[in-house]
Amino acid sequence: MSIRYGLLALLDYGPKYGSQLRAEFESRTGATWPLNIGQVYTTLSRLERDALIEPAGERDGKQQRYRITENGRRELADWYRQPVDRSHPSRDELAIKLAMAVGTEGVDVGAIIQAQRHHTLKAMQDYTRLKAQALADGGPESGEEMAWLLVLEQLIFSAEAEARWLDHCESRLMRLAARRPARPRTGTQPDDTGAAHDAHDEHHVHDDEHAHDDEHAHHRITGGTTA
């Protein structure tokens, strides 16, 4: 869907060939979402079918230039006006992975969280280096450079949100683990010591500052016996 409107938006600047559209789309988004030329021509065919664009002049060999129609301009204006729909979120592999891992015996949820946090931070470091380059020498000058910077910052903010969510998951799991006994692996009952400790935890107002409790809980979520 976004490619369709992305191409319409670029054609609003004037008639273009498919190869030009691909190059300009990638330039504005820093090739974050690379397009293959087949996708471009398939999308152009659909836009033409829907009377949102039309051929501009005669075919130049194998290439055809397109221009936006009045219908296309109206459709584009509608797209700019409408908020992007967030009511049907796409499937998120990380959320699914954690949802499957929590409570699964033998799966180290803490390790999954840390591995992801490491990866996400690394990606943010890379984005941030690109951003520092984009901001060097007085920052973006052209519309294309500004578009690229905004896309980069969107990637940084998304990664940051993921990192914060991972911190939150870890903290929530640790609080839970501190309150509940670790699920026994082989059906054995917790011994008296464990039960007494858990009773203590029940009455303890857990606080992130309590490193001992955190440590105890951490072993539970990373020890392969998730609460």
């Binding site: 820093g30 990866h119 690394k122 990606a123 470091q125 890379d126 380059q133 984009a134 690229w148 990637l155």
Partner: peptide, 10 residues
Amino acid sequence: ESLLASEVKR
């Protein structure tokens, strides 16, 4: 070999 070296380039 940064993560983006082969993916996001200016």
